[in-house]
Design a protein around this nucleic acid. Structure first.
Lengths: 190, 190
DNA sequence: ACTATTGTAATGACATGTCAGTACCAAAAA
DNA sequence: TTTTTGGTACTGACATGTCATTACAATAGT
């Protein structure tokens, strides 16, 4: 991790100046990460509300899922450094931080599990282990973000969202389901 | 990270003894990780060979894929501590280590991409972005390992492998493909 | 006796955090 | 106008702490 010396050097300020604005290095670190996590948690809540609304109206469920995925990707794309820190750099570093990561990932998991259950109850999903599916979706999303979204700056988020959602829809649609129709309702512009 | 004091205490040896056997803490760390990585790389190579062989014989391709997935899961299950260190604890820590992780993950990616292309060439896979699919498979696998395999010790690896492979087969099978037959050939015992 | 091991104490590199002092500006006093 | 004063932002040498690493005398094992 960057030392305070690194930070002040990079910022072109004196060592003391740093401590005028932050009580400790830990503080600035947790503050940055916390902001990122709070934003992400809010996004997840909002996505969840939108999807619930779609379920209530019984329309545009898959489309909403795709839009939610898009927003998740965009959020990470807009915060590349923090994303990198949160998912890679700081994982085994700080007790509090790890706890916070755990909280957020539990939150995300709960939301997703709930969403998949709603899909299942409406016959939009085949029978399967929801917890496992949730892990698959979360894990693949994080990995795609790290491998495709952060390194290249010229990546098309829209089509990335399309491809990811298509993958999961195909994997989850019931035996009797109409793949073409589902994909169309989720992805194709109309 | 564990201090040298922690290590010698845990191992029940003296501080001096530690330095009789290792030049430095870094050395033992890299040695352990390297062993884990080498083992994993070998596993990947072997899996790749098996799958190539299956392609050559034009039989049991999906079954072999499932077996490969199983071996990957088992390898991580057998090395829970190293898995945890490799994927979580030590990610932003050491320059050399990060480079090694990068190498290994590139190796895994190359193999997988190659395997998917073979599947595609034989009409076993729909047209899609192979790089992205590879990320999805790799990411979801790591995540499932961390969330389902490591925490609980009473998890059934076999059915985990089944469910993961079923997920990907459903996601990747061509429009005209026979899902039931594919799943049967991959998973059902016979 | 000889060797391998131990554990305490010392060392040094490097990290964070502190604080007396500098630079500067603007307003008050002369 | 010039000088003094006060306040704010900033600085970097220094204090302090942590931890890997080394040195070495004492001890256990053969």
């Amino acid at each position: 991790m960057a030392s305070v010396s690194d930070i002040v050097e990079e910022a072109g300020i004196g060592r003391g100046t740093f401590y005028l604005y932050f009580d400790s290095k830990r503080e600035i670190f947790l503050e940055l990460i916390e902001a990122f996590f709070r934003g992400y948690a809010e996004l997840l809540e909002e996505n969840h509300r939108r999807l619930e609304e779609a379920f209530r109206r019984r329309s545009r469920v898959l489309r909403t899922w795709r839009e939610n995925m898009l927003r998740v990707l965009e959020y990470h794309q807009e915060n590349p450094y923090l994303t990198n820190i949160a998912y890679r750099e700081a994982l085994g570093k700080d007790e509090d931080f790890s706890a916070r990561v755990g909280e957020l990932s539990s939150l995300a998991r709960e939301k997703l599990v709930d969403e998949f259950r709603m899909m299942y109850d409406r016959g939009m999903m085949r029978e399967c282990d929801v917890e496992l599916v949730t892990s698959v979706v979360m894990g693949s999303t994080v990995y795609v973000v790290m491998e495709h979204l952060l390194p290249e700056n010229e990546v098309d988020v829209e089509s990335l969202a399309d491809m990811i959602v298509e993958y999961h829809i195909r994997a989850l649609i019931p035996e009797v389901g109409d793949v073409k129709r589902a994909l169309h309702s989720a992805i194709e512009t109309g």
